[in-house]
Design a protein around this nucleic acid. Structure first.
Lengths: 346, 346
DNA sequence: ATGAAAGCGCTAACAG
DNA sequence: CTGTTAGCGCTTTCAT
């Protein structure tokens, strides 16, 4: 905490006016009527002295800190958390807010979490953003009640906190449709056996998209395994050794697609000539480094962070329409990132 | 900003004492002499009313906010930033601090950066941590001067701000030594042509380690390319097609190792039986999902974040030894993460 | 052993 | 058009 000496009264003295005038001029208070020449004097003095308002004092007085608290689940291991934070930071900054960030470790006890939330609240954050790692329904920490809050990438069990979500199912659908549009008629899916809601919804999107395209969905064309490269490899091996193997495959996530690449390589299948593949998640480390580079679905992390921040700030500032938007979750589109792993069937 | 009603004077009233006493009891002020029975009454009242001190008011009065400002270069795309933040958050929390985080985009102008730093300073952070993406020498933003600050993963051009750094060169050395210890005598390196200081230092470590082991360093055993999988593939192709090819290779980073895996696969070389490989960086998405899983060097991101936070808090609180440590950068070891990609030569 | 009162830097009535 | 003043909630001398 810098022992910066120059305060509002120094500016007032330098400009030969009262602190009120300085405050009103620098904050552009609407109703205050201050002469143009006085305004200039104030601005000049403030600039000359290098005055920067003490936001703590202002917050104490106005009961508004301009800080939004961000609770991140698993800040460290999830690469997407950074993108959400970036979106939030940029949106916040545009409106003069800053972020105070805490991490909710997977291992933390309920008490530990509550005390972290209490820390945020004690620092008088204006609102709270809860950034979940994976889409699911969760219970907001109790302390948050009574403070404007928003969920990113998850839904509240009590439905009392609204959410910003990715259109995962639509994203999965567009991945599959891309394969259909490329001309494929035998399309397989490498999905997960892990019991996550995402698994079912992506599989459902797969089936519905095929059905909608008038394509038969044969059970053997859906193979599953653990949601990593090893699981993808196993599932892909089964899929690609079918007597009538698919010419294209949609994978539950990029690591599984990486496993599929290995299976294809071992079986002598060239991607994309003999096998087209689309992943999910756009884990750049994987998707860009695979050969050929993987076409995959990008989740709108940045946009979710930004939109959630906007909604939160609207709620904090009591914007009229913030209530209307609150009724249902905001759902953001997933983009298809085109790379090299899809071609028409031969 | 919660309109939480209960303040210190509510507690005082409920306990039948003055606010002074409440403050002294709750803060465990050393010199204050308060009767044991009074203490209990105060604690009980505070607990019963659900009192939480307003940290803003306290900060204003004590000139210490208990907030550390964290400037992240490239919060979004660098997966390591999250780990550093986690280390910082946990260390900070143990001592009652919180983090205010901002992102320095690669594209931001000098002015934009200064204004972000000004925002941090205006919010009266007690100190600043600058988390760089890649090790290099940089100029701290001008505004930071006069505020306790520390650099993570970089060094200050003016040498006026001290650093916490990874022992990259030693890490690279231990990777190579691991291959030597496994019995390899013809060891190659896949390095980068990108002009980054890290490239030279890792190559130097490679050469020195081999020389120290009494092994010849033949120029053809060092091949280079762009620092991604494609570059690694090209370099590896040259390396593995030498007339006397190496039995082991050290890669500049994990993406390049991924490229080497592809080259090995195309040439029919089995890892680790016919070719051992060690990467650098432990990008889990890659290292864990490659087959066989990649043995690689882990940079101490978490530890750097934690240590930097500790040093910073020591400096803020004027700990006596904080000056002594300040003389030279703190250097933290890199761990070798053992997986499946190394075996003795045949 | 406890309390009264000043003040951190700022904003916002209210008065002139 | 501008200045005086009373707090925001807390800590901390200084009295008692």
């Amino acid at each position: 905490m810098n022992t910066k000496a120059v305060g509002i009264k120094d500016v007032a003295a330098a400009a030969g006016v009262s602190v009120t005038t300085v405050s009103q001029v620098l904050n552009n208070v609407a109703y205050a009527r201050v002469g143009a020449e006085t305004r200039d004097r104030v601005h000049e003095a403030a600039h000359r002295l290098g005055y920067h308002p003490n936001r703590l004092a202002r917050a104490l007085r106005t009961r508004r800190s301009g800080v939004i608290g961000v609770i991140c689940e698993d800040l460290a291991t999830a690469p997407q958390a950074g993108r959400v934070l970036l979106g939030t930071d940029e949106a916040a900054r545009r409106r003069g807010y800053n972020m105070m960030v805490i991490n909710f470790a997977g291992t933390g006890s309920e008490d530990a979490r509550e005390s972290q939330v209490a820390a945020l609240l004690g620092r008088k954050v204006d609102g709270i953003l809860y950034v979940a790692t994976a889409h699911r329904r969760l219970r907001m920490p109790a302390g948050v009640a009574g403070c404007p809050a928003l969920l990113v990438n998850a839904e509240d069990l009590n439905r009392s906190v609204l959410s910003v979500l990715p259109a995962r199912e639509a994203g999965a659908g567009s991945a599959v449709r891309y394969l259909v549009d490329a001309g494929h008629t035998r399309i397989g899916m490498v999905t997960t056996t892990d019991d996550v809601p995402a698994g079912n919804s992506r599989l459902r999107a797969f089936k519905e998209t095929l059905a909608h395209a008038g394509l038969e969905v044969r059970a053997e064309l859906v193979q599953s395994g653990r949601s990593d490269a090893a699981g993808g490899y196993q599932a892909a091996l089964r899929l690609l050794q079918l007597e009538d193997p698919p010419t294209a495959a949609f994978c539950f996530n990029d690591p599984m697609a990486m496993g599929l690449y290995r299976a294809a390589s071992e079986l002598g299948l060239r991607i994309p000539d003999e096998l087209s593949v689309v992943g999910f998640g756009n884990q750049e480390l994987i998707a860009e480094n695979l050969y050929p580079a993987l076409t995959t679905i990008q989740l709108p992390h940045y946009a979710m962070g930004a939109l959630a921040a906007e909604h939160l700030m609207d709620a904090i500032e009591g914007k009229p329409d913030s209530g209307a938007l609150a009724a249902q979750p905001a759902v953001l589109d997933c983009a298809l990132v085109l790379r090299e792993s899809v071609a028409p069937p031969r």
